[in-house]
């Protein structure tokens, strides 16, 4: 599969995750969100940027509960809970947000 962003095409796997993480650019998240009928706000971007930093540091896409805990530590308890994260990413903060952020599917997500 592939995704068209600003006239360029990027390869994705059968579940829509970017194949080459190094190719990621913000426009990819915008296009993927549009396909999921989502408009990305600064709240979304806060989590997407957090995920990219997390991946940069640990080379892993965090499981949802780990992400929730880590967001709570960094951005506060009002954001570090699954209700808030699911309100932003209805298909799951692990699966959907990681996909938008150009990360692989979280390890342990089936």
């Amino acid at each position: 599969m592939e995704i068209e962003v600003n006239g360029k095409s990027f390869e994705t796997d059968e579940e829509g995750y970017l194949v080459n993480l190094a190719e990621w650019e913000p426009g990819i998240a915008e296009v993927m969100a549009k396909e999921d009928d989502l408009e990305l706000t600064s709240e979304h971007w806060e989590i997407l940027n957090f995920l990219r930093e997390y991946y940069e540091e640990y080379q892993i896409a965090p499981a949802v509960r780990v992400l929730t805990k880590a967001v709570g530590k960094k951005l506060g308890a009002e954001k570090g809970n699954s209700k808030y994260l699911y309100s932003l990413f209805p298909y799951g903060p692990g699966k959907q947000a990681c996909r938008f952020a150009g990360l692989p599917k979280p390890t342990g997500c089936i």
């Binding site: 540091e57 640990y58 080379q59 892993i60 965090p62 499981a63 780990v66 805990k69 880590a70």
Partner: peptide, 14 residues
Amino acid sequence: MKNFSPTYRALEMY
């Protein structure tokens, strides 16, 4: 190859 050694530092969060 992918350097997965940083992931050992994430184990604590798991």
